[in-house]
Simulated assay, not measured.
Amino acid sequence: MLTSKARAPSRLLGSVGRFGVLSALILLIVFGALRYTGFLSEYNFSTFLRYNSMFGLISLGMCFVIITGGIDLSVGSVVALASVVAALLSPYGALVAVIGAVTSGALVGAINGLIITRLNIQPFITTLATLLGARGLALLLARNQGGVGIDPNNAAFAWLGQGDLLRLPVPGVMMLLAFIVGGVVLSHTTFGRHALAVGGGEDASKLMGLNVNRVKLGVYVLSGALAGLAGLILAAQLGAGQPTEGLGWELSAIASVVVGGTLLTGGTGSVWSSLVGAMLLGLIFNILNFENGKGVISLSPYWQSVIRGAFLLLVVVLQSRLARQSSE
């Protein structure tokens, strides 16, 4: 376990992450409300939540993985694969499509976990390999790069991505429920405590008698399942499986988790801070879209990858400097 002296930098970084990112989110909302007509409209709120729910879900899974000191680069490809699986199964009913999408994601997560724990391969290499494999499988199942259409008669399936529940977009409701469960799991269950312990010190966790491999396997299965759920939402929103979607989504998930104060070295983290981080990153792009509409700037969608990369680099540099200052 970490000593009290070793925990101090982690607590400081966690506090800076939680309160700093929340303050930034609030300031951006105030800025958008004052500058843009329709920014606080129900339409913009609903559209924002509907689209960014997918990034929220993969960020939740990534949070658990990073807390254990791991990384999952395959989530974007898993989203694409699950969207194709959901579309192919949609003629058999919405429930079958949901089960198929989540199961396909969980299976990729299980493969990641087993390779990492049984073959002792680094998570970076393992998930990079499954990133390529899942993307290739998605393209094979789709048989072309145009996607696979869902059954047009399956209104229940389309509702999962396009419908509303109590005037809230269904994908947003699904994301919030997932975060509530994730928050309870991390803070109030044995699995959550073990995940934090493994990230804080794997060798110490083994000496305490924790089944480290089981915890690692669990977080990768969880990450894959949540990516599968995001893929289901993607297919339901767009009306087709999208084998070429999800490129770079793993960067968004990592950036959201890290900006929320979760250390890349593991041992500390908050699912709610990760949610705020995901919403902050999404809000930045939302504001850029409004700026494009005003004609002040003109950024193509390709700039999103540049901004994600720069955002992630900035946060990692700040984390590194804060950690050095805390240890001095």
Rank of each mutant, 00 (worst) to 15 (best):
S83H: 01
A129V: 14
V16D: 01
N292S: 05
L283S: 07
L251W: 02
V316A: 01
Q304P: 10
L131E: 06
I233L: 09
L12D: 06
A94H: 05
T103G: 02
G146Q: 02
L28K: 04
H194L: 13
G61T: 02
G282C: 11
S327M: 13
F179M: 04
R118W: 12
A97N: 12
G277C: 01
G100K: 08
V221C: 08
A87N: 07
L22N: 04
V271G: 04
T265L: 06
V65F: 15
N144K: 11
Q304E: 09
M62V: 10
P152K: 03
L132S: 15
G146E: 07
L176A: 10
F39H: 05
G248P: 12
V212C: 12
P171E: 04
V148W: 07
A227G: 04
T68I: 13
A225D: 06
I233P: 06
N289G: 15
F311A: 15
I66E: 00
V317Q: 09
L312R: 12
R118E: 12
Y43Q: 14
G105C: 07
L40H: 05
A142C: 09
A134V: 09
L140S: 15
R143M: 09
Y92D: 13
A24D: 06
F191D: 00
I71V: 11
L177R: 02
I254W: 05
Q162F: 12
I307E: 14
L141D: 15
T47H: 12
G146Y: 08
A236P: 08
F290S: 09
Q242K: 10
A240N: 12
F285A: 12
G17T: 02
V185Q: 03
N52D: 10
M175D: 06
G183V: 01
A86T: 08
L13R: 08
I307C: 14
D164C: 00
R118C: 14
L131T: 01
A178H: 01
G32A: 01
L318T: 11
A255N: 03
L12C: 09
L247F: 12
A225G: 05
